[in-house]
Computed example of a mutant assay.
Amino acid sequence: MRGVITIAMLVLSNVFMTLAWYGHLQWKESSWLKHAGIWSIILFSWGLAFFEYMMQVPANRIGFKENGGPFSFFELKTIQEAISLIVFTLFLIFVVKSEKLAWNHFLGFGLILLAVYVIFKKW
């Protein structure tokens, strides 16, 4: 159960992270961000990042082996990176819509999945 909670919180964390890092690039033409200066954008992104950290930090504490969770440091980081790419890709497909997935993206994602397998494999 702690593993499921950890992964769910990491997904939410990555949604906020993606919005904080890239959302302002997409919505600049259709909102107040169009006229906002860089400092306003930074403060807006920091506000979103606050919610990222509200999920990320507890997720890592709940999921970490030494706190009773199922994951090592390497596994937590690997899960976070894989989720980050999935969330980012979904953001591009459903929100940005101007970027197209190509064969090299699929190959790269496949290699990342292979890396996840290698990290989690008990040799």
Rank of each mutant, 00 (worst) to 15 (best):
V11W: 13
S13A: 13
N14M: 14
N14K: 04
V15P: 03
T18I: 04
T18G: 03
L19S: 02
L19R: 04
A20D: 01
Y22H: 02
H24T: 10
L25R: 14
Q26Y: 13
Q26M: 11
W27T: 02
K28Y: 15
K28H: 11
E29H: 11
S31Y: 04
S31E: 03
W32P: 08
A36Q: 07
W39G: 06
W39P: 00
S40P: 00
I41H: 00
F44A: 02
S45Y: 01
W46R: 03
W46Y: 12
G47V: 14
G47H: 02
Y53M: 10
P58A: 15
P58N: 13
A59Y: 04
I62D: 01
F64E: 01
F64N: 08
F64Q: 01
K65I: 12
N67S: 08
G68W: 14
P70A: 05
F73R: 13
K77C: 14
I79D: 06
I79W: 09
I79L: 05
Q80I: 03
Q80L: 07
Q80V: 11
E81A: 02
A82W: 13
A82N: 08
S84I: 14
V87D: 10
F94L: 03
V96S: 05
S98P: 00
K100Y: 15
A102W: 06
H105Y: 12
H105P: 15
G108F: 03
F109Y: 03
G110H: 08
I112W: 04
I112R: 14
I112K: 11
L113S: 15
L114Y: 14
A115N: 10
Y117G: 03
I119D: 03
K122L: 14
